[in-house]
Amino acid sequence: MAISTKNGTKVWQRRDRNGQLKVWAMWLVGTAIFMWSWQQISDATTWAFFWDAPRIAADIGGRAMPPRWGYMDKLWAPLWDTLNIATLGTVLALMMAVPVAFLAARNTTPSAMFIRPIALLIIVSSRSINSLIWALLLVKIIGPGIFAGLIAIAIRSIGFCAKLLYEAIEEIDESQVEAIAATGAGRWQVMAYGILPQIMPAFAGISVFRWDINLRESTVLGLVGAGGIGLQLQGSLNTLAWPQVSLILILILLAVVVSEWVSAKVRGAII
């Protein structure tokens, strides 16, 4: 904010001259970057398709309705697989995330110089890469199927869970830990009595939260061959069986709604 004098009267402005210039410059650069980005996208697009899109969308929509309800018989098994990929993947991830989180938290890491950076590196690399990419990789390594999907979900979730968990560990009340240590308790006892009870609510919340996300993600893992309902989606898309596609999409939407409801319920019960 600044007050300047103009023609003898005081004029109030929100920013001074330099501040104003900086803001304008930022807008200018921002707009230029956006225009350039748009140019790139535009160049890579066949605009004839774009203008044709409403017709194509209507065409696909017409073919997709009504969904082929009879196809449901073949979807129960993949749906069960999808649920298992999400659930077992989450369990596996949590088992690995807990030690990583303890190694990464400043107040519990055995060595802030050597071990903490390694734990943080595990967290970052796990988080940076989408589960679909992990699945793509694992399908190449251990072959297509549910197992690859499960491991992909687990690997992707380690970083997410460990990050939230180690932040929770860093926020605990140290005086409770100190009190347990003062009784002459061993290192592991201090962990079990001083730290664990304090992070339990966070742990439960994180688990359910991640399970919800994992269920969404596991619906599409089949696209790269990693099992679950995505496999049927891929098959139906390849054969242009739109009524089946629409049924699967409805099912996925339903699964997402149910999982969100379950996770909200469980979180409500914990907190």
């Binding site: 996208i41 066949t46 398709f49 774009f50 969308a57 599409v220 989606l233 997402v256």
Partner: peptide, 23 residues
């Protein structure tokens, strides 16, 4: 509720391959 990948599949079907669908 809609997974990005699912949306992308549908948009690719409608707009054709390329970054426009992704965008």
């Amino acid at each position: 509720a809609l997974n990005e990948i699912v949306v992308a599949i549908l948009l690719v079907a409608i707009f054709g391959f390329g970054p426009l669908a992704g965008f």
